[in-house]
Design a protein around this nucleic acid. Structure first.
Length: 574
DNA sequence: GCCGTTTTCGGCCCGACTGTTTTCAGTCG
């Protein structure tokens, strides 16, 4: 799928440039839509376009198809090359600042000669941006806040991107000189929501050859270091360069090296302290007593020698896992294979790209027992939210698909909007006919959010709150919500909170999940998919759930179909 | 840019919020 992603990135880039240049908004969104489709396609464009006649991809017409073919043949899109010459490259980057849009960027470039982020900071500081027509003090303050937010998370990449890069490199390394073992380490192995550098550990004999092979990885833009035990490369992505570090250790050191490089720092400090108290020394090379190596081949040994059970990487944050491990109190963390269904999916009835039939087939393929179709409600116009009539039409389609697929239970669901005035976007008489209702905020992020969510939770037909804090990891903090209060109320009512698996949300976060578990709140994991490929994102939700100490019993989509239906019915009765 | 069961041209992404401009422009979801 590499080409798909490359072309998607170029289309997005083109959309950004056209937007700043004031091109027709529909044209811009056509590029964006095509990019999104490409990102989520489960087939290579190369493959699709090599067939005659080429298979049709929705949202990609004559013009875009031509550009894709051009890229596949020449590695370039001439339209993009031309457009790039028309504006300074640094301007595109500014679009990712929340509160700053294409019009303001164009104006700042035109009137003040702003070419990049440095210029932008300068004109904010010297006050000249404030003097621009239409930009008052508050707006400029908002932009400054946006810059600060962006800088805070600068350089970190999403779990999804890091996972994809690491998988690709691991596959590549397996084809090179012989290696005994290979594993991601660091924050990626701990499944943190964002990742700094990507760390990979290899056990092998000939370090030099392996590092050489690593530095020849086709995606490499820059080799930072290349020795006999460690190599560092940069990989270019549309959003910036990603650093990947690879270390080669001997098979006898693999366990201790993996433990050491997985971290977290806080976890390792505590582990080393325990070792010290026992007269031992732990380093990446092994566990030593008086300079005599007594362990290091397997990671399990490192923990066992300290009287601890092996601790899953996702827990290694020094949040009580070491103490729990010592007394046999580690949780039995949920596994991806425990998941019996997906509880948040959009179909092409609203803003999804896949039909209900396609979604159901994919769910069957994943081995699920049930799947919920949760399209947007009527007010979410930008996402083609369903009026009651279209929702009822959808039920007919669900019933039709259900007849063809008795092997899976299709839940009639909705992601109903919590409106600004606190009301829900569908009447109770409609909600009560649904099997699965998740309520969500998509408007009024600063308006009594806590009260509105709690009010929604109290509606007898609402089962859960979707993405409860509303954060977008790469773009914004969440709503102004007192999440502790929401968790408390959900606990009291016996309602669920969602863990949204979409890689830029992962909401609730690991720490909030821990709180929810403590309050006895059941979690519903949903991928928020807009196409069938999105269903694969369940892995990121499960990773976050594991970081939140969640077990099978804490997650309602680990329930068998009957138990789930019983659970939902009991909630409705209240 | 795409798309077509009234259209091959003319819709498509509408509405809320915010700040600022007293009647609207820009941004966002």
């Amino acid at each position: 799928m590499k080409k798909n992603l490359e072309i998607a990135a170029l289309f997005n880039q083109l959309a950004d440039i056209l937007e700043i240049r004031g091109e027709l908004p529909f044209k811009v969104s056509a590029y964006r839509k095509a990019a999104r489709t490409l990102e989520n396609l489960d087939k290579n464009v190369e493959e699709i376009f090599s067939q005659t006649p080429a298979q049709k991809i929705p949202g990609i017409g004559e013009g875009l198809e031509k550009k894709i073919r051009e890229y596949l043949e020449t590695g370039k899109i001439s339209k993009l090359e031309e457009e790039k010459k028309k504006i300074p490259v640094g301007l595109v980057d500014l679009l990712s600042i929340p509160g700053l849009g294409p019009k303001t960027i164009a104006k700042a470039a035109d009137k003040l000669g702003v070419k990049n982020i440095t210029d932008l900071k300068r004109v904010i500081e010297n006050g000249s941006l404030t003097n621009l027509f239409g930009l008052g003090k508050k707006k400029v303050e908002g932009i400054l806040k946006g810059i600060q937010f962006r800088e805070k998370q600068h350089g970190r990449i999403t779990l999804r991107e890091a996972t994809e890069i690491a998988n690709e490199i691991i596959e590549y390394m397996k084809k090179g000189p012989k290696i005994k073992e290979i594993s991601p380490a660091g924050s990626l192995r701990r499944k943190k929501e964002t990742i700094g550098d990507i760390d990979i550990i290899v056990a092998a004999k000939d370090g030099e050859k392996i590092i050489q092979h690593f530095c020849n990885f086709p995606g490499t833009s820059n080799v930072i270091a290349s020795g006999t035990t460690k190599g560092s490369i940069l990989i270019e992505s549309p959003e910036g360069s990603r650093q990947v570090d690879l270390r080669v250790v001997t098979p006898a050191e693999f366990g201790s090296a993996l433990q050491y490089f997985t971290g977290s720092k806080e976890h390792n400090i505590k582990i080393r302290n325990i070792a010290k108290q026992k007269g031992l020394k732990i380093s990446e090379y092994g566990v030593f007593r008086d300079d005599k190596k007594i362990a290091g081949k397997k990671e399990e040994e490192v923990y066992e020698i300290l009287g601890l059970r092996w601790i899953p990487p996702e827990l290694r944050e020094d949040r009580g896992e070491i103490e729990a491990s010592g007394v046999g109190g580690l949780p039995e963390l949920v596994e991806l294979s425990d998941i019996k269904g997906d509880l948040h999916i959009h179909s092409n009835f609203s803003d999804g790209n896949s039909s209900i039939e396609e979604i159901v087939k994919k769910a069957v393929k994943l081995g699920y027992s049930y799947v919920a179709i949760t399209d947007h409600s009527v007010s979410v116009k930008y996402a083609n939210g369903l009026e009651p009539e279209r929702l009822e039409k959808q039920w007919e389609e669900i019933s039709r698909v259900q007849r063809n697929h008795p092997e899976i239970r299709i839940l009639k669901g909705t992601e109903v909007d919590i409106l600004s005035d606190g009301k829900l976007d569908y009447p109770d008489s409609l909600l009560e006919k649904l099997d699965w209702v998740i309520a969500a905020i998509h408007q009024g992020f600063k308006k009594n959010v806590t009260e509105r969510i709690i009010f929604a939770l109290r509606n007898p037909h609402v089962n859960a709150v979707a993405h409860p804090t509303g954060r977008l990891l790469s773009r914004r903090e969440g709503y102004e919500v007192d999440i502790d209060k929401v968790i408390e109320e959900a606990g009291k009512l016996g309602k669920c909170l969602e863990l949204n698996s979409y890689y830029d949300r992962l909401d609730l976060s690991d720490q909030n999940l821990m709180k929810a578990k403590k309050a006895g709140v059941k979690i519903a994991i949903g991928t928020d998919s807009h196409d069938i490929a999105g269903l694969n994102q369940m892995q990121f939700g499960v990773g976050t759930a594991r970081r939140g100490w969640l077990e099978k019993k804490d997650i309602i989509n680990c329930f068998e179909t009957e138990a789930l239906e019983k659970f939902l019915k009991s909630k409705k009765a209240k």
